[in-house]
Every structure is written in structure tokens, then in C-alpha cells.
């Protein structure tokens, strides 16, 4: 009887309480984690955003004070600008780049496994070490990048030491990590049924028509997911900037990104309330960005069978 009842989906009301209890038992670590490390802190952080607290004296409710101050804080606007600047360039370039690499890695060459390894490698080395490697590559006088630019007859900029070029440097560096997304697109590409291409070939479609009319629409749900996550992640850029600027966000605040500013306010100046308000602004921006993407997601093509 047990076996039979498994196969037929039982309505919720008839669910065995025994099974439900055990389900919750196994979910318990996550539920507790959700309460203590996600939900609780989110609410606490919202409360803190309306308080003034230096961790020494008791917190003080100050109403909208933090938000009012933030609105006239030039450093906040600068960090917001820097974060948007980085996101607006790094995300689209990264997505186009990783799709191109995924298309290349979907070919049937003997060396394709080795190539995938090479392209994926930098995304596991992300962190302090790779930031240091790029500091060296971006060295204005002896760095490889300016050396090669010099060979092309271009006088390389000062990169991380220049107000104008420090953000482009971060964007270029982010491209090194396209391998992580490449793997996701590759999985998506390999899930596209061959028959679609074969049918198109019979109709006489060329490579570009096949890409535009089959590959791109079939890949669009993956692109959509990836776009959302890439924006979430790029709003959180921190480690590279911290390492490359010794936690300063220089020169002249040109790399002071929002998360770095939150970090400075919270853990250097111990303005916990102000920092929480900043964190909530970041959260709301990410929420709005995500919702906008859902609203304008008509371009995403869902094949019938993928819809549940």
C-alpha cells in the first residue's frame, strides 16, 4: 500500500503527520539558520538603520536621521556612482564574454577539455591572490599590460593610480573570471536539442541565423538567471578593491564602492546604525533591480516543457 500511495500525489490534507514532522526535522538546520543568520539579522539591521550606535553606549533611536544624513553624504553618492559604473560595464561585458567563450567551448575539438579548464581556472583563484597578481599586471611602469600597450604604440595609463582608469581596471580584471558563468552557459547550450538545429539546416539557415533564432532564445532563461545573479554579485564587489587600495578605495575615492563604504563605516568608524542604513539601501537597490528585470523579462523564452 505504501508503494502505491507514493506514486499518486496525495492531497495536502491527507499527508502523514509522521512524515511531515520528519521533514521539518531534516529542515531544522536551515530553519534555525534562517532565523538566526538571515531573517533575524535582516530585521535587526532594519531596526539599526533607524538608530545611532557606536557599540559602546546603548543604541539610540534617531528616526530617519541616518537616511537624511546619507542623502547629503557626498561619499555615499560617490560610492553609489562607482558601484553603478562598475555594474553597468562589468555585467554586460561579462555576460557577452562568457556566452562567447561558452559557444567556443561547445565545439567538438579534441583540445576542448583543456580549453575549458584554462578558461575556468581563474574563477577558482578569485580573491586576494588574484587581486595582487592584477596589481602587478597593472603596474604603470613595469606591468605587462602597459608593456603590451606600448608595443601597440599606446602609452598605457596609470591604471590603479589614476582616478580615471581605476574603475576600468577593475572591470578588465573582472573579465578574467568569465569562466564561472561560462560553465553555466555551456550546460545550457548542451541542453538545446540537436533536432532544432537540424531542422533549421534543412530550411537553409546559416550559422548566424541559427544562433539568433535557436541558440539565443533557448539560452534566454539561463541568461536571465545569470543576469540577475551577476548584478547581485557585482553590487557586492569588495575584496579586489580592498586589496588593491589597502582598504581605502582610492585614488580620490574613485574605487570606493558601496560595500567598501559600508565596511568602513561599520568596522572602522563603528557607526553601526549608519552602516545598517547603507546596507539597507544596497538591499533595496538590488531588490528593485531584480524586480525590474522580472518585469521586463518578456525577452525570456520558456519552452513549454520547462514551464511547470
Amino acid at each position: 500500500m505504501e508503494v502505491a500511495s507514493r506514486k499518486i500525489k496525495k492531497p495536502y490534507l491527507k499527508m502523514s503527520t509522521h512524515e511531515a514532522i520528519w521533514g521539518y526535522v531534516f529542515l531544522m538546520p536551515w530553519i534555525l539558520g534562517m532565523i538566526f543568520f538571515v531573517g533575524g539579522p535582516i530585521i535587526a539591521s532594519l531596526v539599526l538603520a533607524f538608530c545611532k550606535w557606536d557599540l559602546i553606549t546603548p543604541p539610540q533611536f534617531v528616526g530617519m536621521d541616518n537616511f537624511i544624513k546619507i542623502m547629503s553624504d557626498p561619499k555615499f553618492w560617490k560610492s553609489l556612482y562607482n558601484t553603478f559604473y562598475y555594474t553597468i560595464f562589468a555585467v554586460p561585458i561579462g555576460i557577452v564574454g562568457s556566452i562567447i567563450v561558452a559557444l567556443l567551448m561547445n565545439q567538438k575539438w579534441k583540445s576542448v577539455r583543456l580549453l575549458r579548464t584554462i578558461y575556468y581556472l581563474p574563477s577558482v583563484t578569485a580573491g586576494v591572490a588574484s587581486a595582487i597578481i592584477w596589481m602587478w599586471l597593472f603596474n604603470p611602469d613595469f606591468g605587462l599590460i602597459n608593456y603590451f600597450l606600448g608595443k601597440l604604440g599606446i602609452k598605457g595609463p596609470l591604471w590603479l593610480a589614476s582616478e580615471e582608469w581605476s574603475k576600468p581596471a577593475l572591470i578588465i580584471m573582472s573579465l578574467w573570471g568569465v569562466g564561472g558563468n561560462m560553465i553555466i552557459y555551456l550546460a545550457g547550450l548542451q541542453g538545446i536539442p540537436r533536432q532544432l538545429y537540424e531542422a533549421a539546416e534543412i530550411d537553409g539557415a546559416n550559422i548566424f541565423q541559427k544562433f539568433w533564432n535557436i541558440t539565443l532564445p533557448m539560452l534566454s532563461p539561463v541568461i536571465f538567471f545569470n543576469l540577475i545573479m551577476s548584478i547581485v554579485w557585482s553590487f557586492q564587489i569588495f575584496t579586489q578593491v580592498y586589496v588593491m587600495t589597502q582598504g581605502q578605495g582610492g585614488p580620490a575615492d574613485s574605487t570606493l564602492v558601496l560595500v567598501l563604504y559600508i565596511y568602513q563605516k561599520a568596522f572602522k568608524f563603528h557607526q553601526m546604525g549608519y552602516a545598517s542604513a547603507l546596507a539597507w539601501i544596497l538591499f533595496i537597490i538590488i531588490l528593485i533591480a531584480t524586480m525590474l528585470q522580472f518585469k521586463f523579462s518578456k525577452w525570456v523564452y520558456y519552452e513549454g516543457e520547462l514551464k511547470k
Binding site: I42, F267, F283
Partner: peptide, 24 residues
């Protein structure tokens, strides 16, 4: 709904939970 909730937590930036967690 809980599963959906779990998936959507991927979109929460750690910075929002960072400060209260630190205080905890």
C-alpha cells in the same frame, strides 16, 4: 513556499545581515 524562500535568499546581499550577525 519554503523552498522558494530558500532559493530567494541567494539574492540577499551578505552586507545586510553582516552587521547584526557581527553584533550577535
Amino acid at each position: 513556499p519554503l523552498f522558494l524562500l530558500m532559493i530567494s535568499t541567494m539574492m540577499i546581499p551578505v552586507q545586510v545581515t553582516m552587521i547584526p550577525t557581527f553584533i550577535l
